[in-house]
Amino acid sequence: MLAQPFFPFIPQLHIPDGFLSLAVAAIFWLLSLVFVAVGVHKVQKTFNERLIPLMGIMAAFIFAAQMLNFPVAGGTSGHLLGGALAAIVLGPWAGILVMTSVIAVQALLFQDGGLLVMGANIFNMGILTALVGYGLYRPFAASRRTVQMAAIGVAAWFSVMAAALLTSLQLWLSGTSTLNVVLPAMMGVHALIGLGEALITVAAVSFIRQARPDLMGAKQVREQGGWGWVAAGAAVTLLALLLTPFASADPDGLERVAINLGFMHAGQDAPYQLLPDYTIPFLGESPISGILAGLVGAAVVAALVVLMVHLLRRSSTLTNRRA
């Protein structure tokens, strides 16, 4: 089968059935259903009867775009998840619908991601990425090109990180993984995957803006989503920025919070899954250093993007000269 060779490159955010507890799966199905239902309503109003062909083909586009990859080093390759790209180019509600369809087809056709846990997968890879991706891009939609591209890069990077964070938390709440191992592992791998996502998203948006400036004007952006998205996106990013270092430095602390709030009890089926003390020496860092690391990561992405925009501009003046 043709698509098979591409699958190893798709990052492991597609949770299969069996890895989440029933309670966690049900909660995220509910959350996702609410977002998708509102999304259908909103997008129907914007596109009317154009909704179905446009969204269907855009979903097929994201699926196909996930095949595009580039070699990084040592046999690994960077490629696109697409959640942020879809939300930035089509608007957040349309982005959610597109990603929902992609995740549904991947689960039904390829068993890439489960059915009972599909709600969680839709939330992590479709809704969260739209919140963060669009929310962080929206305030800069009318800014200078360099600023705008930097915002898109940061938004794409954070969208992947937020998805990885929530996936880790869901696995932990389900009693499937211990937080002090799954969180650093997921965040570490996806910090790199997010970098590829950021670079591809920036280049793709910049290409689309040149080829079809009519699709991404300030007017469209205003119509697609308001400041509620910005607030939600900023809130999710801030929460991730605070939670990640706190959780990696003090998993027991987060566990206590979860028990106090009753999350642990709701998520887990057996009492012995309450995680015992189990620490890895090299993870003993303070929350402050973790937050700093997150900010440094964002700064690195921004710098890379500025550099790339510079490259883009140089190559486009070159082409103009040649023409």
């Binding site: 855009m58 586009f61 990859n69 696109l80 670079l199 793709a204 080829a211």
Partner: peptide
């Protein structure tokens, strides 16, 4: 990465 991004952009425009 930029070349791949351009390909994704191209694919988007063609799909749209």
């Amino acid at each position: 990465a930029r070349v791949t991004g351009n390909m994704a952009g191209q694919l988007f425009v063609r799909s749209f």
